[in-house]
Nucleic acid binder design. Structure first.
Lengths: 247, 247
DNA sequence: CGCTACGTTGAGTGGCATCAAGCGCGGTGG
DNA sequence: CCACCGCGCTTGATGCCACTCAACGTAGCG
């Protein structure tokens, strides 16, 4: 069974079985289990390994002096937390868990070795970070321009599609292991308002939410209601650049 | 005289004179002059060269179907527009000018040649893009959590420091070749409200704005008023990693 | 069985948007 | 040289979207 990272990277590059194996092994070496609402890395720290989410949800966030918190990005299984550590020594934001999370700590040097041996992996990881910044740009648009309802709907579309990209959806449903307070901090809204907007989406039949399970019965409808355009996720094409002649 | 790109990169890596020369020459080959309010690249296009801003201001932006526009990033002299084109074929956003702009079109292959010959340049360019995404993260925080006044003050701090990093400030002042409408689209506010908030900043003596010249008489004061922490710009240290033994 | 965390609901408020009109200035053409 | 025009800035009036404060319901858990 491939790790979510490999499942995701395969959308971009056709990895050879050797490449997959190298990545999968690295992701199984130092696995750590972390409870919800804990920090993985804090602003100011200098990590010397890369954290890979294997299961559960985490987030990047920044906190202002007066306590206001903005969740900057939501990290799903298959997401790498701190690849920038290779170039930038000091974290300018924190990473914390939202749910129970298992992460693999991948040694910096181990990852370097893999990328040196497998240029396709290097390319695929580069693609991974570029998609991450494309998502970041879309969040700016989301918070800056969309109404509260559109914002929440847009976020649901994104999360659902990203979960599907790592095979963690079940038909029209996926896990949503995150509180309304966290949603609020991600969207720049208050938790009270998130609650009301959520009810509106439910009333319109655009989503249902039972327990921690999100269901989107009519994804196209939610997309149009949220002005959602999936192009920024760059999921559509398997990489033509990089074809593995499986050795 | 070095181009702004070299001036900026030197904050991170001590480049040899040969490296500087290579970059400067590439930036002087195909120079183009563009009027204000024009597009450099549009969403959906597939650029095969990299655009480098030499003078003037540009922006990344996205437009929703109903016309709402969000400026995602402001590009200053020394900024590269579309390095992701190396990995992602299709633009998921547009780049347009704010003022009159001169850009250098750098051929993709030419840049590849430079980076292959000069690993320090590769590293420095990587740093450049990482700073870009760090700025993007901070914009998310800015729009998501700060009040209108803090938002505008924060943006002014950032732009001033980034201009200073490429030696385009004059004491406490720098050019601000951008309209209030553009500021509004960058901050997720209406132009009317930007105008009022601007007056508030002026009344408090935090900024003065005459013609297209921004002056920040007391930068520390504006910083605290805006909850500004410059760490995300990663300007503080000249790279220790990468020292040129000038050949 | 009480505690805590999360979700829900109501009332009141305010920040910021929208609409609309007027101002100042530089550019252009008669 | 001046009238005209357009663009960007400014100001006022009005209204709504979303925030704050506060209380209560509910479910999981030690």
């Amino acid at each position: 069974m491939d790790t979510p990272l490999v499942r995701k990277l395969q959308r971009f590059a056709r990895l050879s079985s050797g490449e997959k194996q190298a990545l999968n092994e690295a992701a199984r070496l130092n696995v750590r289990r972390i409870g919800p609402r804990e920090d993985i890395i804090r602003e100011g720290e200098r990590p010397d390994q890369v954290n890979l989410i294997l299961s559960g949800w985490a987030c990047r966030y920044k906190q202002l002096e007066d306590g206001r918190r903005q969740i900057i990005a939501i990290l799903l299984p298959g997401d790498l937390c701190d690849t920038h550590a290779f170039v930038m020594p000091e974290m300018d934001h924190s990473i914390g868990t939202l749910s129970v999370v298992t992460v693999a700590e991948i040694d910096r040097d181990a990852l370097t070795t893999i990328t040196e041996q497998h240029p396709r992996v290097t390319q695929a990881l580069w693609w991974e970070t570029l998609v991450g910044t494309a998502v970041q740009r879309e969040w700016t648009v989301n918070i800056g321009q969309r109404t509260a309802t559109e914002r929440l709907g847009h976020l649901f579309c994104e999360l659902f599609l990203r979960m599907r990209a790592v095979d963690l959806t079940d038909g029209p449903s996926c896990e949503l292991p995150i509180t309304q307070v966290d949603l609020a901090d991600a969207l720049g809204l208050s938790n009270v308002h998130v609650n009301r907007v959520l009810q509106e989406l439910r009333a319109n039949g655009l989503v249902t939410l039972r327990g921690r399970l999100l269901t989107i019965p009519d994804l196209p409808a939610l997309k149009t209601a949220s002005l959602f355009n999936p192009n920024y996720l760059h999921l559509d094409r398997i990489g033509r650049h990089l074809d593995a002649t499986d050795e």
